[in-house]
Amino acid sequence: MERPGTNRPSAYDQAYYDSAAVDYILRGRRWQSWHELLEWLRSEGVDDPYLAQGELQALRQDVERAAARGAPFDNDADRLWRELKQ
């Protein structure tokens, strides 16, 4: 018998994303701004089969914070990852 809750994502999955998720998003297209990326996360990103809901939510929150503080936007995955983690 399977333990209750084993089919649910863990709390770790719900509030975390890694650099592979950032790389995946950037591979899809060349973004022009935080705003453009944020619009995608809020609309099409919700249905993206690669991103878990927790990853999507954490990414959206970090993108919102980066945009609000006026961080420079970059299409380089490593630079964007570092900016999002500040």
Rank of each mutant, 00 (worst) to 15 (best):
1 M>N: 04
1 M>W: 05
2 E>M: 13
3 R>T: 07
3 R>E: 14
4 P>I: 15
4 P>H: 06
5 G>V: 10
7 N>E: 09
8 R>L: 14
8 R>V: 09
8 R>Y: 08
9 P>N: 06
10 S>Y: 03
10 S>G: 09
11 A>C: 04
12 Y>A: 04
12 Y>I: 10
12 Y>D: 05
12 Y>N: 02
14 Q>N: 15
14 Q>A: 14
15 A>S: 11
16 Y>V: 00
16 Y>R: 03
16 Y>E: 00
17 Y>G: 09
17 Y>F: 12
19 S>E: 11
19 S>F: 01
19 S>D: 06
20 A>G: 05
20 A>I: 02
20 A>V: 08
20 A>C: 06
21 A>G: 00
22 V>S: 01
22 V>G: 00
22 V>T: 06
23 D>K: 02
23 D>L: 04
24 Y>C: 06
24 Y>A: 07
24 Y>P: 00
25 I>Q: 06
25 I>A: 02
25 I>Y: 03
25 I>L: 15
26 L>Q: 02
26 L>M: 05
27 R>G: 09
29 R>Q: 11
30 R>S: 10
30 R>G: 08
30 R>P: 05
32 Q>Y: 13
32 Q>W: 09
33 S>E: 07
34 W>N: 13
35 H>M: 10
35 H>A: 05
35 H>C: 05
35 H>R: 15
35 H>Q: 08
36 E>N: 14
36 E>C: 08
36 E>F: 11
36 E>Q: 07
37 L>I: 04
38 L>W: 12
38 L>Y: 14
38 L>E: 09
38 L>V: 03
38 L>D: 10
39 E>N: 15
39 E>R: 13
39 E>Q: 12
39 E>W: 12
40 W>M: 13
40 W>R: 09
41 L>P: 01
41 L>F: 12
42 R>A: 15
42 R>Y: 15
44 E>D: 11
44 E>A: 08
46 V>N: 00
46 V>H: 05
46 V>K: 06
46 V>R: 06
47 D>Q: 14
47 D>V: 11
48 D>G: 11
48 D>P: 12
49 P>F: 00
50 Y>K: 06
50 Y>C: 06
50 Y>V: 13
50 Y>L: 12
52 A>C: 04
52 A>E: 15
53 Q>W: 14
54 G>D: 12
54 G>Y: 02
55 E>K: 10
55 E>N: 05
55 E>P: 02
56 L>R: 15
57 Q>I: 12
57 Q>N: 13
59 L>G: 13
59 L>F: 08
59 L>Q: 09
59 L>W: 12
59 L>H: 09
61 Q>I: 03
62 D>L: 00
62 D>H: 13
62 D>Y: 08
63 V>R: 05
63 V>L: 01
63 V>E: 01
63 V>M: 08
63 V>I: 03
65 R>I: 01
65 R>S: 01
66 A>E: 03
67 A>N: 10
69 R>A: 03
71 A>G: 01
71 A>K: 04
72 P>M: 02
73 F>R: 10
74 D>M: 00
75 N>C: 13
77 A>C: 09
77 A>P: 05
78 D>H: 05
79 R>F: 04
79 R>G: 10
80 L>A: 00
81 W>H: 14
82 R>P: 00
83 E>D: 13
83 E>H: 05
83 E>P: 02
84 L>H: 02
84 L>A: 07
85 K>Y: 03
86 Q>H: 11
86 Q>C: 01
